[in-house]
Structures are given as C-alpha cells and as structure tokens.
Design a binder for these strands. Structure first.
Length: 592
DNA sequence: CTAGGGTTAG
C-alpha cells in the first residue's frame, strides 16, 4: 500500500503515546526508552525530545534525572536551545550547578542562541555556587546578548550578587530596573538580610509597600521576620505575624522557622514555643531556632531538654543545632550537658566539630571557671586546619571574667601573634595588661599597634526612639541625654546587683552540684525577674537599648536585658551586625 | 514546552 499524503504525525505513534502515558516519572520513562532502542527508534529526534522534556519534568531526584537527561541530550541530533535551557535548569535544580554551567558553556561554543531562559538558569547556577567571577562573566555575556532588560534575568542577578555578598552590585541592578516584580523585591530584601543588613532590608520592605504593583507574600515575610529577629523589632515582627494570618499565607517550613526565631530573639520565648508547638512537623530549622531561643535567654535546661526530645523523635540535628545547644550550655553553665552534646555530635551524628563548636566549648569551660581545662582544650584543638583565633578570644574573655589577668595577657599575646594585623587584638591585650597592672606592657601594646598603622575600630551600640537612631560609641558620651541614659543604666545595674545578679554570681552558680543547679537557676531567674520588675518602672522613659551581644563580657545578662526591653515592646536595634567582628575590638563595659 | 525570591547559630 502506497502512502498517501504526509506521514502521520509522530504524536499518533504508539511509542509516543507510551511516553505520554509514562508521564514525568523516571522509571517508566526508562522502560519506554528501552523499547525505543529495541524497535530502532532511539534516534528519532521527536521521540527523544519528548523523552527528554519528560525526564526534565521529573524534577530533582538526587541528580539521577540530570544525569539521564545529559545522556539523552548527547543522543539527540542537533539539540536546540530549548533543550539546553531545560537541561541547565534541571541540572541546577537537582543540585548540580556545575553541570548546569558546563552545559551553558557548551551552548556558547556550539553558538546556540541564548535567551532569557538560558540566563536566568545560568545565573542561578552561579548563585548556588556563590561563584562571583563566573557570575560576573555571565552578566557580561547577557549584556552582549542584549538580554539585560529582562525582569527574570535581572532578578536572578540581584539574587546572585546578594548571595555573593556584593551588595553594591545587587543594588545597582535593582536600581536600574524600570519595573520590579514581587520576586525582585524579595530578592533585594533577602540580599540585605542575608548579609547582616537587616535595617536596610526593612527599608527596602517599606519601599516595597509603596509600590502598588506588588503585594508582599510568604517569601517577603520570611526575610522580613528574619530582619525583625536580628533587629529585635518585636513590633514589626508582630505586624508580619498578623499580616500572614490576615492574608492566609500558608505557613510552610521557612515561615514557621522564621516565626519561631523572630519571637525567640525578640524576647517572647514562650510565644515562640507556642508557635513551635503548633507546628505539625517542625523541621530542623524550627527546632534549632527554638533551642537557641531558650539558650539566649539563659534557659539552658529547657534548651537541653528540647534537644533531647529532638534526638528522640525529631529531625536529625545539624551543625547549627549543635552551635545552639553548646551556646545554650555555655550561657547557663551546663558544663556536663555541653560536654555530652559535644561528644554526641561526633559519636551519634558523625558531625565533625567546626571552629564555632570549639569556640562554644572554650567559652563554656572558661565561663564556668575551668580555665586550665579551657586552655588545654584550645592547645589541643587549635591546630591547623582550625586556626583558633576565636577560641583564644573566648579564653581572654573567660580570664577577664574570673580576674585571671596574667593568664589573660598570655592568651591575648597569643592572639596578637596569630592575627597581628587585627587592631582589636592590641586593644584587648593592652586592656588586659592594664588590668594586670603591667603599665609598661600597656604602652608596648599600644605602641606596636600604632607602629603597624592600625586604628582602633570603635564598637558602638545604637538605640532607636520614635524612629530616631541614637548612637553610642565606645569611650564617648556625645549623646545630648547621655548623662540621663547612663544614670538609668547604672541604676539598672545597681538594682540587678542588689537582687543578686552579676557575672560573678553567675560564675558561682556554675560551681554548684548538678542537682542543685536547677534550683539555683530557678532562684537566679526569680531574682532576675525582680530586677526586671524594677526596670519596668524605670523603663518608663522608653529607653531603647541595644547590646553588643557578641563581644560583651556577659552575654547572658545582656540578652536578658534585651528581652526584657523587647517584652515591653521597645524596639531594640542591633547594629552590631553591620560591623566586622574583629575579635575583641570592643571590650565589655560599654553599658555597665 | 523552559525562568527569578525564603527559615536556624555566633
């Protein structure tokens, strides 16, 4: 029988129908592929294309789909740009951004036409790799291809530069956009937030609210809540909370974690717990946020209890979880629990301790007064590849706390030797020398610092009252109401000491037996509550305080104070993250 | 027929 007319469309062939029937599922597709090979149809361009698009649709599957799709691509004669675009996308989605970039380069070599789809995926692959030079190169390519005006591409660029920490570049792309989508705004807000510029993130969010073309969604709220958490801005955090409720935004894992973290960091630990308890299956982030929330409010026992619960019937803890647990133990003096967690981390979870875990251990041992053990710990752990400067900084802090100034000088000298270009280390050393009464060494440290042309980076705290920022720099009292404010803070400290709270009592508490510890802690908390009761009347002046939590001598007290302030719905703004964390560049005592 | 944004620590 002679064929009449054009050949029947491939869509009617049984094997094509089998492909469609298989759907975007890898296994069935492979079976149909096998049949194609058997029946000699494995070179059919249209069938292969259909197969490939279906494989791409299967989404991430541990890279299997990407590998398979790559294989198929090579059997398609003259694959077109569309297939490449899809493949680049599926590669980066299945966690192989390097493969995505290889495909992108192959595409250029083969002079296949690139389009906006190509670049959004290629730029995203760079973002996933945090590959700034490659990202810049591709940015150049897309400029040459005349695709720099596409909103999708531009948004991907904002995200890329954000992820790589090049905020000026992110902002330049953002500012150059005549039209911005919801995702663009979200990318810009996230870029600031992820780089420690939470205040800027909020500023951009405000600008976004003025853009009638977009309406904030869940992703906006995730970044906004993170910013609130870092700023201690309970007010705005609560607003975001009710926005989520009003707009019926689905509370997925990311929003849940951000909410728990916001409440915890803003001082509403119990509120955070309520959110946490309302989650159907909290993920590792939510658990970690909750544990750290307890820890930063000195509720170490609850942090440890929650961690134990997590180990029994929660998701697998990760390295961040262990930082939270260890920091909680350090702040609450729970040395036994801290040691146990540190060992469990390696033994039960196969996680190698990173420098931050070691720092927590040193901090914990040091605060608890086990200085010799802390020194031993540092000497054994501080071998390459762990540099250990941060551990020595923690040791210096512990020596100061326990007034072991000679030992502190030793640690600070070590620190200076390790990081001789860090101005903060010289300041630390000279302070320690002064405390140890070694006047000539003070001069030597300052002289060496000057000789190297290093300048002291002044730490500062900022407070915000009614939308105005008030800045307090180390060693200066320029604020017009400085006298009043410092009098208030001194009074606060005095009252706290009066009811028994001081770094020293915290230290004594570390020494009590384990069974007594809980009682001691509870007692301790009651005293604190009294102290804060006093504050709540004195705080009528609505002073808004920010503590430098990282470097100050007594994080525990600072966080307690901060949370008390936050509970009174006072905005606490932590500008600390705007600055370089130069170990010890500002010492304790800026507020008390 | 394909594309861009999100959470946890110190």
């Amino acid at each position: 029988m002679e064929p009449t007319g054009p050949p029947p469309p491939v869509e009617h062939s049984p094997i094509y129908q089998s492909l469609v029937g298989a759907g975007p599922r890898l296994r069935p597709l492979r079976q149909v592929h096998a049949r194609m090979v058997v029946s000699g149809l494995h070179r059919s361009r249209s069938l292969l294309t259909k197969l490939l698009t279906l494989v791409i649709k299967t989404g991430p599957s541990g890279g299997a789909a990407a590998a398979y799709a790559g294989l198929l691509l090579h059997s398609v004669p003259n694959p077109d740009g569309f297939l490449f675009n899809s493949l680049i996308r599926v590669s980066s989605r299945s966690g192989d951004p390097l493969a995505a970039l290889r495909l992108y380069r192959h595409m250029r070599q083969a002079t296949l036409a690139r389009c906006n789809y190509t670049f959004t995926s290629a730029v995203k692959a760079c973002a996933d790799l945090a590959a700034l030079p490659t990202g810049r190169e591709i940015h150049c390519h897309l400029l040459l291809d005349g695709l720099a005006g596409d909103v999708y591409v531009q948004t991907a660029l904002v995200a890329l530069y954000g992820k790589c920490g090049d905020l000026p570049a992110a902002r330049a792309v953002f500012d150059g956009m005549p039209r911005r989508s919801l995702v663009t705004w979200n990318a810009m807000i996230a870029a600031y937030e992820q780089n420690g510029l939470a205040g800027e993130a909020v500023v951009v969010f405000r600008a976004m609210q003025a853009d009638a073309a977009v309406e904030p969604d869940g992703a906006t709220m995730v970044s906004l809540l993170a910013a609130c958490a870092h700023l201690g801005d309970l007010r705005l955090g609560q607003w975001a909370s009710s926005y989520i409720a009003t707009k019926h935004l689905p509370v997925g894992a990311a929003l849940a974690g951000a909410l728990v973290s916001m409440y915890a960091r803003c001082g509403c630990v119990d509120e955070a717990r309520e959110v946490f308890d309302g989650l159907r299956r909290p993920n590792v982030v939510a658990w970690t946020a909750m544990i750290s929330g307890y820890g930063m409010h000195g509720r170490g026992a609850e942090a440890v209890a929650l961690f134990r619960m997590m180990s029994r019937r929660g998701p697998r803890p990760n390295t961040v979880t262990f930082v939270a647990v260890l920091a909680a133990c350090a702040h609450a003096g729970l040395v036994v629990d801290g040691r146990e967690a540190f060992e469990s981390m390696q033994r039960d979870y196969g996680l190698l301790p990173r420098e931050e875990h070691l720092v927590c251990m040193v901090d914990m041992l040091g605060r608890a007064g086990h200085l010799e053990e802390a020194f031993r710990f540092v000497r054994t752990a501080a071998a390459p590849p762990v540099a250990g400067a941060a551990m020595w900084t923690a040791l210096v802090g512990a020596c100061k706390l326990h007034r072991r100034f000679e030992l502190g000088v030793e640690a600070a000298e070590r620190l200076v030797a390790m990081e001789s270009e860090n101005a903060g280390n010289y300041v630390l050393l000279s302070n320690l020398c002064a405390m140890a009464g070694r006047t000539e060494a003070v001069e030597a440290a300052r002289g060496e610092m000057a000789r190297r042309g290093l300048r002291k980076v002044a730490g500062y705290s900022a407070v915000e009252v009614g939308g105005t920022a008030h800045v307090f720099r180390m060693g200066e009292r320029r604020h017009p109401q400085a006298a009043e404010i410092y009098r208030f803070l001194e009074e606060l400290e005095g009252r706290m000491r009066e009811v028994g709270y001081s770094p020293e009592t915290a230290t004594v508490m570390h020494e009590v037996e384990e069974e007594e510890r809980e009682i001691a802690l509870r007692h301790h908390s009651e005293k604190l509550a009294v102290a804060f009761g006093i504050m709540s009347t004195a705080g009528g002046t609505a002073v808004r305080v920010v503590k430098n939590l990282r470097i100050c001598g007594d994080c525990h007290a600072a966080v307690k104070l901060m949370s008390a302030v936050a509970r009174r719905e006072i905005i606490v703004r932590d500008k600390h993250r705007f600055h370089h964390f130069q170990g010890g560049s500002c010492s304790c005592g800026d507020f008390w």
